[in-house]
Design a binder for these strands. Structure first.
Lengths: 196, 196, 196, 196
DNA sequence: ACCGACGGGACCTCCCGTTGTT
DNA sequence: AACAACGGGAGGTCCCGTCGGT
């Protein structure tokens, strides 16, 4: 039935926001109840446990992030343009975040790494996909002689992700976009240094 | 009294480790009790609240980080050497972390930004000091003609910190040092690009 | 649902008795748990806090008192008879108290006046109603020429209540009805002195 | 040593005020610590337990009350004058209470009757003394033909005390002296009714 | 599909009292 | 005589999850 699916979605959306803002340990099922207007039964009907809800909420959050990438590569064929497009995506990340509370990948990675293996695996897969995307763009660029073949695509991917997430961390901490923008600025120079 | 100060230190050390591993919301006072062997009364005699303990624990964690910087600049007079020394500090960060659970600055920043203003302020000050350190090294290097004066010291500082923290996040997530090492590798190239 | 309302009533009844016996500060939620056989979750589902339970418990206690007044005026039309009936109600107050622990109005007034504004307001309203009742009886009596019009109905009301409550205090303290009975005896004479 | 006795007195004075305001269950040893500026040891050096402190505090409070009676009978030889003087004492009771928080006899009686036998006994003795005082005045008045011999001195004593304490209860509850003043007004008439 | 009562326990905080030290 | 660390436990509150009912 559609109604049930709708309710499930609503729970997930509110839970994703709450977990992203307060963390998995810091947000309670009661918070989700209040946000959704549902009672205990209404939530536990759709999710066996808070854990299961957390996993679904992270998947939803990751999906929100992925959607931003969807349209951005249209019309960009060259590797350098694609990388620039990706990086420029983050220029509006703070003003129009996919989810309040910063980057769910960063937040969830930091909270789950030592405490929540299931959640940690989900984040790993999310970053795996991100790294693979960057890697693919670079690989094709090298094949097409757009990208300097002496670079290590894996390193570039790690540097991109680390810089963006580190920049988000700082800008969220100071509540000021300047740090993320500096990271983006650096990445743009970096892209130009190896793409012709 | 010396005994009291010792107990207070013991509480802080265990609390810092627990908070760094499980987060402020994820670690309980009972966890601290168990780790220290004290009872509640024994802990609350030294700290008015879990909050106050969290602040003291972060200060302690930050102090542990700072101590690593203390000796590393000895004998290094040139700006480029100093920056390299700083970055190389992080090559052993994962094998011999100052505190189990990763970087307390990163962990605390991510958890506190939307939930715990007092803690967030502490982290801000910690990063302020870090940024100021990098800024000072660069400034002196520019004055001594060791550093290309066209760089923006503020941007370099943000890039250093973002990359290192982002690299730590990734390496902690994958439980593998490679990502942090890539970030460090990139930073070394970056340093060489503007220091003569 | 009827079951819930029943449980709520059961909690209130036990809480009213416990608060009346030991005071609001002296009776714990654990005491209420033990008395009702419920667990904390079962109690806090019905009341957001001990405070809210205390207010509901006082309202219940006041209602028990009010019920005693309900039937006692039947057949008594004259003001003097009504006042006598009210006063005689208290002749059995100690043997068959509406609630163990003495008069909840007295107990709650004494405990709440300097510490618990919300509870104090409830007691005020309870005494307001009592005073209004006495005032109304006297007023009608004056209009019907049954009561000496030179008396001050407000003063009579204050005297009635003060004497009864003071008498209860003493008799509870000595665990002997004599003091309350003396107060009642005095009030009867008082009534005769101004009612024809 | 005088110093010790002084400290003991200081503790008692603060404790008496705190217990009178918040009740025995509602005031904690920590409150006494804060009020006196002493630490645990400083208090438990003088009192074996909170209970013992409570008894001493009540004795002190009762003594404060008794002192008010000391001078008031000077120059008054006639029974009626003495009773009037006693009653008039209470006209300033609310404006200049011997202790903040109302009448310690009333407060302690209400709290202790079902919970604290030792304290209850102390209050009983305090009221015993008060009743005996009134009884003695009346007895002498009867012997001297100043007081109508048909009255029951015991009843008069109970009525006096009940009315004054009940009046204090009401005036404290409403934070307005009118109710106590009405009780006093009634008592004055009462005195005139049996004293010549 | 959703409500809501309830269990059972963990949370942080504060309690009273003891003990060793100065 | 007073301080202050500490034990051990109870305080009120909130947690997550279950289950009977609608």
């Amino acid at each position: 039935m559609a109604k049930a699916q709708e309710t499930r979605e609503r729970i997930i959306q509110h839970a994703a926001e709450l977990f992203n803002l307060r963390g998995y340990a810091g947000a309670s099922v009661s918070d989700v109840m209040q946000a959704t207007g549902l009672q205990k039964g209404g939530i536990y009907n759709h999710f066996k446990s808070k854990d299961e809800l957390a996993l679904a909420a992270f998947d939803y959050a990751h999906q929100l992030l992925s959607q931003r990438y969807q349209s951005v590569f249209r019309g960009k064929r060259r590797a350098g343009d694609r990388l620039l497009a990706m990086v420029e995506l983050y220029e509006q990340f703070l003003e129009k975040p996919p989810l309040p509370g910063g980057c769910p990948i960063l937040n969830t990675a930091v909270e789950s790494d030592d405490t929540h293996p299931a959640l940690r695996d989900r984040v790993q897969h999310a970053i795996d996909a991100w790294r693979a995307l960057i890697h693919r763009i670079l690989q094709k660029g090298i094949e097409r002689n757009e990208i300097n073949p002496s670079i290590d695509p894996d390193e570039v991917a790690s540097v991109f992700i680390a810089l963006l997430e580190g920049g988000i961390m700082m800008s969220k901490l100071y509540n000021h976009p300047i740090h993320l923008h500096r990271a983006i600025h650096h990445l743009k120079h970096y892209i130009h240094s190896f793409s012709q």
